[in-house]
Design a binder for these strands. Sequence first.
RNA 1: GGGCGGAUAGCUCAGUUGGUAGAGCAAUGCCCUUACAAGGCAUGGGUCGCAGGUUCAAGUCCUGUUCCGCCUACCA
Length: 884
Amino acid sequence: MKEKNTGTDKTYNPKTSEEKWYAEWVSSGAFHADHLRQGEAYSIVIPPPNVTGSLHMGHALNVTLQDVLIRYARMNGRNTIWVVGTDHAGIATQNVVERELKKEGIARQQLGREAFEERVWKWKEQSGGTILHQLKRLGAACDWERERFTMDEGLSRAVKEAFVRLYEKGLIYKGRYIINWCPRCHTALSDLEVSFEENKGSLWHIRYPEEAGGEGIVVATTRPETMLGDTAVAVNPKDERYAGMIGKTLRLPLMNRLIPVVGDPMVDREFGTGAVKITPAHDANDFEVAMRHGLPSVRVIDDSGIMTLDAGSWAGQDRFACRESVVAKLAEDGLLVREEPYVNNIGRCYRCQTIVEPAESMQWFVKTKPLAEPAIEAVRSGQTRIIPAQWEKTYFEWMENIRDWCISRQIWWGHRIPAYHCSACDKTIVDAEKPSKCPYCGQQDPKQEEDVLDTWFSSGLWPFSTLGWPDKTAELERYYPTTVLVTGFDILFFWVARMMMMGLECTGKVPFRDVVLHALVRDAKGEKMSKTRGNVIDPLEVIDKFGTDAFRFTLVILAAQGRDIRMSDDRVEGYRNFMNKLFQAGRFVMMHADETTARELPKNLTVVDRWIFSRLQRVIDEIRKGIEEYRFNDAGHAFYHFVWHEFCDWYLEMIKPSLEPEVAAQDRERQRAVLLRAYETIMALGHPFIPFITEELWHTLPGDHGLLYDTRYPSSDAAVIDADVEKDMEYLMDVVRAVRNIRSELNVPPSRKVEIRLKGQSDRLSFLKEHEEILRRLPRAEQVVYVNSDYIPKGDATAVVNGIEVCVPLAGLIDFDQEAKRLRKEIDKSNAELARVTGQLRNDKFIANAPEDIVETLRNRQAALEEKLEKLGKNLELVSGYLS
RNA sequence: GGGCGGAUAGCUCAGUUGGUAGAGCAAUGCCCUUACAAGGCAUGGGUCGCAGGUUCAAGUCCUGUUCCGCCUACCA
């Protein structure tokens, strides 16, 4: 069924295996969740990308991390489900389609609501959801048979149900308040949907004369145009400057209206002039003041940002033109006291960047306080963990100061609010099903609310609506609460917080056990990627260039908790090289292992084998721990280092002698089996990170393999860990390194074989003797000889490892000057360390307070250094003899 | 205004109970040694932002401080 790699390719080619294996995974049904399958449930719902979206770096990181978790869980025998789908993204999508229409010269109003909605659906069918196909390029093990859309039938039902339930509990209400209005999108926005930025504007001081003819009061404002709608001036009742003014009447300039001075503690005496103009219809604070004092409200800016008829002669002007004009007129009238530069924050619509206008308006709200309480408690009690934990504080902060959530939007694309108005009795009927007549007065055909719900209302239900809620489905029973939610910290409030509230309210359970928040992916310079900056790196291009696995591994390695990621081609290239390394190691394995190679691990392992397996156990633990604690970079690094710098650099080199034809067949076969087994384990270990190449190589290996996706993840066996063997091997490697160092530093040509003379106590030499072949092969030595204690390494280059002297005779070749330099460097290094160690050991307080094992280690270190220095010193003397 | 994060090798960053500072890339030297030049071997490089404190011992804990970045907020 599968094409086997013939071993002729010199490098790994990702393209062919990626397509092949994704198709294979899907068609085998491996990604499809079955609630009847055994194993503890492990569930993830994907943060649904917007239907309008296309894959960007943020998705790539997000999806990769989830895929690592899902594959890992699956390989550990869990019953996994990864729910996938898209979000209808109300305003964003509507804007996209409106822009399209505009190209045809049509405004949505001309089209009418129904036709427009149809148009959006058509657009969604055609170009929406391409992002989901792009996820496949990443290898995402999503359950495509359960793909959902926030506006599909089931989820729409969930939305209506949730709305009705909340309404009936009094948690949803309708009322006139100040909301954020986008004059471009023509809709209300929630507080979160407004992003603030610093703006260098002015603070204008304007005199409001007293009606009676006095000086009046000077107010300060950043938005003079709103004065046309002023209905009062407020001062702090404790402010002595205005002690006599409260209750007096002022004449509102330009409008010639009479307005009162009121006293309100909200006013900060320190700011500006200590007097605030009150515009109840266009400022949230002023609105509250007006409520407290029973002041009227005058809307002077309309839904499009144009001055209303109530703005007098400014009616019809744009709000910003009006500002200039008002200021000019005030100056002309001598009422502009002064204008000072002032930096304040202005809010912009997060979808279209238009400056938002606070406006009094009739809207629907969710009463959030009662919902926030359990959501806070759930995190406080640990039912849901937020990782990294530092985000919990931010979460609490926001939840504790939460304000009611404006959920109605005056757009057409979205879930229409399931509320109906009876024109006869003026009552509101909230019902999931459209009532045929008013239940209060019997009037026929009540009219449905025009507004739709905030997109985040439906996404707030995502973890359970996708599993069938409000029905009690088997999936909901099996997979909810979900195990982990992986998302960017930027939507902690927008989405995570809302899911917590809605989940607890609707299901009585938290929506997820763990919330893993990852950071942003930036460009190589650390700048946020954006179309306007032109620094966007397209994940698909990276994949085309380097392969999915290299790309995924880069993301994993860079995904240190909570830290932003800087992405660049150079990075990916480095890990592409790692993929090739894995591939090359595979070729090596395939050169030696074949169908006849034993499937089981042989019993009588060599020390070298025991070493690599001992190390392997530790690495398995490290990787497992890393993934389980969401420390993906730790896991990735552990894998990388082990594969490249232990398995490839040392192990493969060390076993080469035992794979050669002259080795006894039995031993050779044994070695092949061990090699194959170790490599198989590596493939399995790497699979969650780099699924394609591992699956490919897995099937290239001799023997019948099922999908690696469905194979058990390696577990460590403590009994296989052998600290003594690890220590011995470290020693052996140190000797090899010492000889290599001599060769390199003294410029011994690689072609030239050397002799190694070892001098030292026999018990320290015995291990080296047992592995003489390695000692010969790796540093390219002709022979190893063991010399007596009276041997004088005249004309040798020397090093000291573990108390034995490693001598390399270089008759005629040695540069004594160079060798003396080399020895001195080593002596200096050891001396420096010895000084540190001795200093510490001379400290009585250290001896008295430090734990015994620490002191012991240091003493051993001291002894070893002294021994080493003594020998190095003698050898240096010897070399110096030749110099003088 | 409040909160959070960062400051460690030339660059980008790890460093989880305090116990001799690590990686990748870059750099330097030598090598086409039959798995791999997308490679191998070896080497150089850091007073861990600054100032105090706790401790036998601090990159790691505490206090203060400077410079960046982000989030949040009803000073008009």
